[in-house]
Computed example of a mutant assay.
Amino acid sequence: MIRDAHDAAERLLSWYDHNRRDLPWRAKPGEEADPYRVWLSEIMLQQTTVPAAAPYFRAFTERWPTVHDLAAAPLDDLLVAWAGLGYYARARNLYKCAQVVANELGGRFPDAEERLLELPGIGAYTAAAIASIAFGRKATVVDGNVERVVARVFAVEEPLPNVKPKLRALAGTITPDERPGDYAQAMMDLGATVCTPRKPKCMLCPWAEWCDARAAGIQEDLPRKVAKADKPTRRGVAYWLLNPEGAVLLRRRAEEGLLGGMTEVPSTDWTAMAPDEAALRRAAPLEANWRRLPGTVRHTFSHFHLELGVVAAKAGDGWRRAEGIWVPVDRLGGQALPSVMMKVVRHALAHA
């Protein structure tokens, strides 16, 4: 167990100075961190790995190098650029936050946690990360990597997620006043590169001698997690409809709820039971000679599995009555289609 927080911080920061990761959003040694880049990266990393987020971050910052640029962009452009990162509510909140910062705060992010928490899409972790990394404020920054380090150092055996408040409190006891931004990033790097989920590299750890889990031989068992319940499966059918000009019908989902505001291939509701023929006729965007395509589109969301059948048809003379937008097939890449709908598009193109 760490008994001298100052000594522990010094040792970790020394390790970090020699082993820090080179990340596209991270300021170089001696450089001042850019709050916009810190904020953007933290939003992207909320549910995404570093390797997955890095190319998106580079693309965003090349296209929208400042918060003013991002705030002035059309929302649909941002959603298209976000496609593949998932959790589109984060993208919409990113856009709202950029507009608040650019239009109401003069392009300057607040430097205090409590004020950062007032911005759309910024929760406790993100506020602490921005305050410490971008502004050098002392803050307790706890992501999944930090939770793992703290659980092992203090041998906390209660399972996640209920133990999160305890882990945060313990992390707070060893958070230093000096170099808080570097310390926060050092903790993240330690968890990502040394104190890894499997086969941690304890011999390389600057805190190995203080780690209670290592002393007890249970480091690979921590942090414990409550067993997850099996995800239910929902089912539906998507409608691939082409007009006489070769364009496909798309529509925008409601702003609230799953994939809110995103563009989709029209579909039935997603329910436990697959829709019957009557339900298929009711949900169809137009009366047409629908034929079922072979195979099934499968996708997994955070809380359920989805299985979609696909039916295809060519619209007749009344195609303009359909609710939605008609998009040429070769321009589908410019639409804000979430990953599940891109799977539907690929399936339809392969089998229609």
Rank of each mutant, 00 (worst) to 15 (best):
L222M: 01
Q219I: 09
A208C: 10
P223Q: 02
A238R: 02
E245V: 11
K225G: 04
Q219A: 14
L241S: 05
A238K: 04
P223A: 02
R224N: 04
L241E: 07
W210H: 09
N243M: 12
Q219N: 06
Q219P: 00
V237D: 04
P232N: 03
I218E: 03
A208G: 08
A229R: 15
A238S: 09
Q219W: 08
K225C: 03
C211G: 03
L222F: 04
G217V: 05
P223W: 00
C211S: 06
G217K: 01
Y239E: 02
C211F: 09
P232F: 05
A213L: 07
R214E: 14
P223G: 00
A215M: 13
V248E: 06
L242Q: 06
G217L: 00
K225S: 09
Q219S: 15
A227L: 15
A208I: 14
L222Q: 01
L249P: 14
D230R: 15
V226N: 11
A213Y: 00
L242R: 11
E209C: 09
L241H: 07
E209Q: 14
R235C: 08
A238H: 06
T233S: 05
E245W: 11
A229C: 03
N243R: 05
A213I: 03
K228R: 14
V248N: 06
P244L: 09
K228D: 00
A238Q: 05
P232S: 05
A229H: 08
V237W: 04
C211H: 12
R214P: 01
K228H: 12
Y239T: 02
D212W: 04
R224Q: 11
T233A: 04
G236L: 00
Y239D: 02
T233C: 05
P232I: 10
K225W: 09
P232A: 05
N243A: 08
K225T: 10
A227P: 00
K225E: 08
A247R: 14
R234N: 08
P244K: 12
V226Y: 10
A238W: 04
D221T: 12
